[in-house]
């Protein structure tokens, strides 16, 4: 077994490179045994489960280099707890950012709101309105204000999601085309709320970055 893992805040992503057909899979973070050990890890909770930890920006960049066949690109990862991006120019790293503070809990808050209000993000259209949100947690008060002002719950939450997407877009430098990774790739309202072109890469990009590094370091396929 050659187990690699991206330990996110709400979900952990795994791949066993020694399997006959290595396929990435998800596990809710709350189900992960504290005794679990993996060969290589990244992610917010990764240091608890491995002796070989790769920081998240490095894993994201290596995954992006492998998956995106362009010399110039911006890759933004929107997870449960934070957002981070890498920007490449002429095949070289040009800029990066990691917002664990003001980007705090964006994905987590969007998921919580969906469950609380029983909202299907597949069905919600992108609203015209957005509002100023500092972060996922502080932005919730805007939702309550909107509802108090007479806006429907779904519309208020959709405006919040759009606001979060605009924040993330600005954070990544407002590129014409944005490659998006992380759990929020699975939220169609969020993806459609970005101003520019968005190419979703799914939630296994950091895991791919680990696989690239494992191959480089250990010769794994």
């Amino acid at each position: 077994m050659m187990l690699l893992a991206d330990f996110g805040t709400t979900y952990a992503k795994f791949i066993d490179l020694a399997a006959a057909n290595p396929t990435p899979y998800l596990e809710p973070a709350k189900n992960i045994s504290r005794e679990l050990r993996v060969d290589m890890a990244t992610g917010h909770n990764g240091t608890r489960f491995t002796d070989h930890y790769i920081n998240e920006l490095t894993a994201l960049a290596r995954g992006g280099e492998h998956l995106i066949d362009e010399e110039d690109f911006t890759l933004l990862d929107c997870g449960s707890r934070d957002i981070k991006f890498v920007r490449y120019e002429k095949g070289r790293l040009a800029d990066m950012g990691w917002n664990a503070e003001c980007g705090a809990s964006m994905g987590f808050t969007i998921e919580l709101l969906g469950r609380y209000y029983n909202i299907d993000y597949n069905q919600l259209p992108v609203p015209k309105k957005s509002f100023s949100v500092t972060c996922g947690v502080l932005g919730m008060s805007q939702i309550f204000d909107e509802i108090t002002a007479g806006s429907g719950e779904e519309n208020a939450v959709a405006s919040f999601v759009k606001s979060i997407a605009i924040n993330a877009y600005r954070f990544s430098g407002e590129p014409d085309r944005l490659y998006l990774s992380g759990g929020l790739c699975d939220n169609p309202l969020f993806v459609k709320s970005f101003p520019g072109d968005v190419m979703g890469l799914g939630r296994f990009v950091l895991l791919k970055g680990l696989a690239v590094l494992a191959k480089k370091e250990n010769g794994w396929p």
Binding site: N55, T58, D82, R92, L93, M96, N99, E101
Partner: peptide, 27 residues
């Protein structure tokens, strides 16, 4: 041409440290 702007308040948290590490490694 090969720079990272970095600001940090009082202590260097995990994201600041990761930015430094990743920048140096990826460069």
């Amino acid at each position: 041409p090969r720079a990272l702007f970095l600001d940090c308040d009082i202590t260097a948290g995990s994201s600041v440290r990761a930015k430094i590490q990743a920048f140096l490694e990826l460069s």
